[in-house]
Design a protein around this nucleic acid. Structure first.
Length: 584
RNA sequence: GCUGAUAUAGCUCAGUUGGUAGAGCAGCGCAUUCGUAAUGCGCAGGUCGUCAGUUCGAGUCUGACUAUCAGCUCCA
């Protein structure tokens, strides 16, 4: 065994350590709330949780008391002992202890299974293990119960809601402190807070899930869209715009009525039923059908920044990350089956280009067809094999996500990793044989006969709104120059240099920069403070000296005072920084 | 949608055992003309989320609704 067996470098040890902490929590709950029924309590990403069935929810005071009890249990140095029972013995054992959820769990295990338990003092739990050998191994001052919430038994909203306690534990207090600090940092970066402070966007009670974008937020939106158009033009895409409201009949044809009705908004026009689009593809199908195409026209790559509306559950809404109206950077590629691999590879490269530009790391998931897949088994196998083959050839590592694809086909998802290590699902590539079938899409082949194309549905940002939310948190509001709502703040020191400041600002504007001039009769320190808080990339401090020498003194929001520069020289530098979309 | 919590000025928050609201910042005015993260003084700003109820009297107590927050479920 290696020396690092007993460290968090060892994933298995970390899991066992936290799982043991969760057993200590359960033991504490049984001591303080003897009537509580045990459900499950695994180790998770940043800690652990345990679900209990209790008459009343846990209060913050309960959590404090439980933490104290847990420390006691650690002090008692209880050994953890494993023992095994047969299925019948195990069920009888848990019946006797009046643990109905444990009984249910055991009943779901195979008949010949050997069932293991762990005992620590008076507490026994059904558990596969492994565990630490003693409660004393858990560091009493490096664990914390973080929250108590409701959670459904077995994650199913038809089941009873249980009380879940979340907690975390580390081997050293320093590590716990660092973890708590990271949570604080995430709070500071919260896009809902920054969006308001930087006047980018906001959500109002009048429109739950329907975000407002203010002028500064629109600068970012427009810059992202401009970049999207530029890149897609280079990659051979054309662009369309399809209607937001379309006849209900269309949604029956597309299958959305059967598979997505619960999430759709409906309306009536002149006595006819219409639906607000939750996805852009049906509109894209109609656009394709405007005329007959030749095999020479394929692959046909068509983009659409399409505004979609989805009725999300009220409790699921979250700032810009989860909204009810958003713009997808949708792209549809109509092609032959032979072209599929090359096209998928092309999209993977395109998405890679976009994420790298923002400094995002990412990982890839392959989701196979779900249970309610609308195609036959042959198509299911074939389409899944195409995506798998491309991923294997691309050499990108990926994980498998069985049954998580769209109702019309399998998909490749891109989860990007932000500046503080959180992941977000954004990009997607979905392979679809079904929509072309349902919409009777055709092209004329070299043989003069009519053939059916297949298609890809793809998105890189996923949703512009969510992407802006992620970018806001990723950069903590300090957007790179090309995205910054105000790129340069011109700050005259006294009224004497106000006119000079205006002329500097005018030249910057002429060079294409977004500039604000602060001519209020405030001290320079105050003006700098405001510009810093607004995370403006560059500040130009202009006093009598600068005016006399015809230069500007440059301050960067992160690098600080950069000294005096010739304005023309600065414009050249900033133009390069902006045009290359550099992160500084 | 479900469980729990919260809702007072543009923002962040006070508001004691029920006796019809206060601070800081932001805003506006005046003075100040200043060299790299907050100049001073003054002014204005709220039917206390909404609707009912209890009470002589409700920001404060009760109920319903709405929104938000932490999760569950779901997902771009």
């Amino acid at each position: 065994m290696s020396d690092n067996q007993y460290t968090f470098e060892n994933e298995n040890y970390k899991k066992a350590y936290r799982h043991t902490t969760s057993h200590i929590l359960a033991q504490a709950v049984k001591r303080l709330f003897p009537s509580a029924k045990l459900a499950i309590g695994p180790a998770i990403e940043d800690g652990f949780y345990y679900d209990f069935d209790t008459e009343t929810p846990f209060t913050p005071e309960d959590l404090d008391a439980l933490e104290a009890e847990m420390r006691k249990i650690i002090k008692e140095k209880l050994p953890l002992e494993r023992f095994e029972l047969s299925r019948e013995e195990a069920i009888a054992f848990m019946r006797e202890r009046q643990e109905p959820y444990k009984v249910e769990l055991i009943e779901d295990l195979p008949a010949d299974a050997v069932i293991s338990f762990y005992r620590q003092g008076d507490f026994v739990d059904l558990c596969a293990g492994p565990h630490l050998d003693s409660t004393a191994r858990v560091k009493a001052n490096a664990m914390k119960l973080t929250s108590a919430t409701g959670a459904y038994w077995r994650g199913n909203s038809d089941n009873k809601m249980l009380q879940r306690i979340y907690g975390t534990s580390f081997m050293k207090k320093d590590e716990l402190d660092a973890y708590l600090q990271r949570i604080e940092e995430a709070k500071k970066r919260d896009h809902r807070k920054l969006g308001r402070e930087l006047e980018l966007f906001a959500l109002y009670d009048e429109g739950p899930g329907f975000p407002f974008f203010f002028p500064k937020g629109m600068v970012i939106r427009n810059a992202l869209e401009a970049f999207w158009r530029e890149l897609h033009q280079e990659c051979g895409y054309s662009e369309i715009k399809t209607p937001i409201i379309l006849n209900e009949e269309l949604w029956h044809r597309s299958g959305h009525w059967d598979h997505y009705k619960e999430n759709m908004y409906f309306t009536q026009i002149d006595g006819e039923d219409y639906a607000v689009k939750p996805m852009n593809c049906p509109g894209g199908m109609l656009a394709y059908k405007r005329r007959m195409w030749s095999y020479k026209d394929l692959p046909m790559r068509v983009g659409e920044l399409g505004l979609v509306h989805r009725h999300e559950l009220s409790g699921a809404l979250h700032g810009l990350m989860r909204v009810r109206a958003f713009t997808q950077d949708d792209a549809h590629i109509f092609m032959t089956a032979e072209q599929a691999e090359d096209e998928v590879l092309g999209v993977i490269e395109k998405i890679d280009t976009i994420y790298k530009l923002f400094g995002f790391d990412y990982h890839v998931e392959l989701s196979t067809c779900p249970e309610d897949f609308i195609g036959n088994d042959e198509v299911r196998t074939y389409s899944e094999s195409i995506l798998k083959s491309v991923l294997d050839k691309s050499g990108k590592p990926y994980t498998l996500n069985p049954g998580d694809g769209a109702f019309y086909g399998p998909k490749i998802d891109f989860h990007l990793v932000d500046a503080i290590g959180r992941t977000w699902q954004c990009g997607t590539i979905q392979l679809d044989f079904q929509m072309p079938e349902r919409f009777d899409l055709e092209y004329t082949g070299a043989d003069g006969a009519k053939h059916r194309p297949i298609m890809l549905h793809t998105a890189a940002y996923g949703s512009i709104e969510r992407f802006i939310g992620i970018l806001t948190e990723h950069f903590a509001g300090a957007f790179p120059l090309w995205l910054a709502p105000v790129q340069v703040a011109v700050l005259p020191i006294t009224d004497r240099t106000a006119e000079y400041a205006e002329s500097v600002a005018a030249q910057l504007r002429k060079a294409g920069f977004r500039v604000e001039t602060d001519t209020r009769s405030e001290k320079i320190g105050y003006k700098i403070r405001e510009a810093q808080l607004q995370k403006v990339p560059y500040m130009l401090v202009l006093g009598d000296k600068e005016q006399e020498d015809g230069v500007v003194t440059v301050r960067h929001r992160a690098a600080g005072d950069l000294g005096a520069k010739n304005l023309a020289e600065l414009i050249t530098e900033l133009t390069a920084e902006s045009d290359t979309r550099a992160i500084k």
